[in-house]
């Protein structure tokens, strides 16, 4: 191929990247370091240390962390069970497990709301059994439940991919050399599946840290995550400078997280297409 000429094919894409990825980021950073009159200021960036914003940040990070850990804990057994089962149509089970991912996400969260709301299905069942209703919705737990429900497939898929692709020979060899199941698990399966967990973390932790929809629907606006505060700055308070400042801070968090965990982005994307 004539490299100089084929390289020209990339021009539309390069223009697109500059026009709709680079320039917008430039604008959000500009907005973040100026005030309403356009004068330079750092107050929108340091605003993250205000008590309200700091509380929201801590809440966002901790809810995202708990959700991610729960997703990892739930995913491993699925992968291990599928690996050891002799069930021929593993791909069908895999298909069933990730099918909900294709269902509109707002609809799914809405359904979750109907299940756990105060006069929802769980409480209705408890009532007919003569038990006291539970306060489930509008709690941090409800938000975590929503996040785990929404993002579990995104953890399950890469973990499954990495565990199912460990060659059986490696495990056989370990067993021949005297390893028991626990040893195989901790010394072979765990280390070889870490890349899957890493990309799972970027796909669960980052969206749940920046989430505002689940918190609005299942948290009832009572629990403020950083995403909620940013959204309100743009739709209610109309302080776009402060909103941009907080967004840039959030972007920094996201970049740090993905730098630590996300060195396998490409494999993941390929895995998604199945």
């Amino acid at each position: 191929m004539n490299r100089n000429r084929t390289r020209l094919l990339g021009v539309p894409y390069i223009i697109w990247v500059i026009g709709f990825t680079v320039i917008p980021i430039f604008f959000i950073i500009t907005k973040a370091v100026t005030d309403g009159e356009g004068a330079f200021t750092l107050s929108n960036l340091t605003a993250i240390f205000d008590q309200l914003h700091r509380k929201a940040l801590v809440m966002s990070v901790s809810l995202a962390l708990v959700s991610t850990i729960i997703c990892i804990i739930l995913s491993y057994p699925v992968a291990l069970i599928l690996r050891s089962s002799r069930f021929k149509r593993k791909s069908i089970i895999l298909f069933i497990l990730i099918l909900p991912m294709w269902m509109n996400f707002i609809l799914r969260i809405l359904a979750m709301q109907m299940i756990i709301s105060n006069n929802g299905i769980i409480n209705h069942i408890l009532e007919t059994m003569g038990l006291a209703p539970l306060k489930l919705i509008n709690t941090p737990g409800a938000i975590i439940l929503g996040m785990v429900y929404d993002y579990l497939p995104y953890m399950m898929l890469p973990v499954l991919n990495s565990i199912l692709s460990i060659p059986e020979d490696v495990i056989e060899a370990a067993k021949d050399l005297g390893s028991d199941s626990l040893h195989v698990l901790t010394r072979i399966i765990l280390p070889l599946s870490l890349s899957g967990v890493g990309s799972g973390i970027t796909m669960v932790f980052i969206p749940s840290m920046t989430e505002f929809v689940i918190a609005n629907i299942l948290g009832g606006g009572k629990i403020q995550l950083l995403g909620n505060i940013i959204e309100q700055e743009f739709t209610v308070s109309m302080n776009w400078n402060l909103g941009s400042g907080l967004s840039v801070t959030l972007m920094a968090f996201v970049l740090i997280t993905s730098f630590i965990f996300g060195r396998h982005q490409e494999d993941t994307a390929a895995g998604f297409a199945i």
């Binding site: 959000i28 969206p207 920046t210 941009s244 967004s247 959030l250």
Partner: peptide, 12 residues
């Protein structure tokens, strides 16, 4: 994050 991409595009 989607929210950052969305806002950045909005501002542009």
């Amino acid at each position: 994050a989607d929210i950052v991409t969305g806002i950045a595009l909005l501002l542009w």
